[in-house]
């Protein structure tokens, strides 16, 4: 299966090209000259120990931070090239169609589940409503756009198994459902690049297996690129097509799951220098699980 994926890797066009990305906060260098690329219709995982700068990469991509140095080029399949580092925050999702989720879920808690999905389609509706005025007059184009928006929202509710909860307040959902809703909301933006920041954090093994299926479905059926930050190795190793490893703000490895798994630098970064010996128990468990999965 791994080799089949590797062949496919070659075929997909590059979606995101990160070149020499550096992010400094005063004297602290959070990301130091990182370059990597992510291909369309592939899942690219960014992994690394805590504090490696993974979320900072996302924050640069989505306009939260302006990178100190570097070029972030997104080749939109339909709209041409965008240089994300030069774009004003809200235009990145609006024009370049990049959507993201957060490590600690960020919904609009006082809105209903459905409304969270409608607001994700804000720009479409804004245009259709002639910047609200047409909407007030009840123009046909707006009504049609609104119906389409609701249809898309329903599709994702259904996909994520949240249909029963459509009218609940988003903040009142159980944690697992909030995570699903956040992904659904990102997908309602119809992105070309979906950035997921630890989507499996806090999920139980079954939920995390569900998540794997959802992400593969999104990749294969919606044909978009996914950028994934994840600690859960069972997720990363199973679904990623390509893995980038960061440590202390630098890229230390880049390749297929196979290559990364066997890369001595990665093992050292995760496990520490050999003389240290001791492994953090959760990392050790991950490795054992992983090895076992390999065998079967």
């Amino acid at each position: 299966m791994m080799s089949a994926m590797a062949i496919e890797t070659g075929r997909n066009p590059t979606l995101l090209e990160v070149e020499h990305l550096t992010m400094r906060f005063g004297g602290l260098v959070a990301i130091d000259d990182v370059s990597f690329s992510a291909k369309d219709r592939e899942i690219t995982a960014i992994i690394g120990p805590n504090g490696a700068g993974k979320t900072t990469v996302f924050n640069c991509l989505t306009g939260f931070y302006k990178p100190s140095v570097g070029r972030l080029a997104l080749s939109h399949p339909r709209k041409g090239e965008f240089l994300l580092e030069r774009m004003e925050g809200f235009t990145i999702p609006q024009k370049a169609d990049v959507a993201r989720t957060f490590q600690n879920v960020r919904l609009f808690p006082a809105m209903s589940v459905l409304e969270n999905l409608i607001i994700a389609q804000h720009n479409k509706l804004m245009r259709a409503s002639g910047f609200t005025i047409g909407g007030l007059l009840g123009l046909g184009t707006y009504r049609r756009a609104e119906r389409d928006a609701v249809d898309l929202a329903k599709y994702w509710l259904d996909r994520m198994g949240l249909t029963d909860r459509a009218d609940n307040e988003a903040g009142s959902l159980p944690y697992g459902d909030q995570r699903k809703l956040e992904i659904a909301r990102a997908m309602c933006m119809q992105p070309v690049l979906l950035c997921l920041d630890e989507p499996a954090a806090g999920l139980n093994p079954r939920e995390s297996e569900d998540l794997n299926q959802q992400l593969l479905y999104i990749r294969d059926e919606h044909k978009i690129g996914i950028l994934l930050i994840e600690h859960d190795m069972s997720v990363v190793m199973t679904i990623s097509d390509h893995i980038v490893v960061l440590d202390y703000g630098r890229k230390i490895s880049d390749g297929s799951p196979e290559q990364v798994r066997n890369d001595p630098t990665v093992i050292r970064a995760y496990l520490g220098e050999e003389e240290d010996g001791e492994l953090p128990p959760d990392v050790e468990q991950d490795l054992i699980d992983d090895a076992r999965r390999q065998e079967t």
Partner: peptide, 29 residues
Amino acid sequence: FVISHTTMGRAQRACQQDMKMAALVGINV
């Protein structure tokens, strides 16, 4: 009605709840 039913009103409520997130769904804050 404007606040609860129009696109602009929805954007307004979104900004009220989480301005950064609102920008991330493409709202011009």
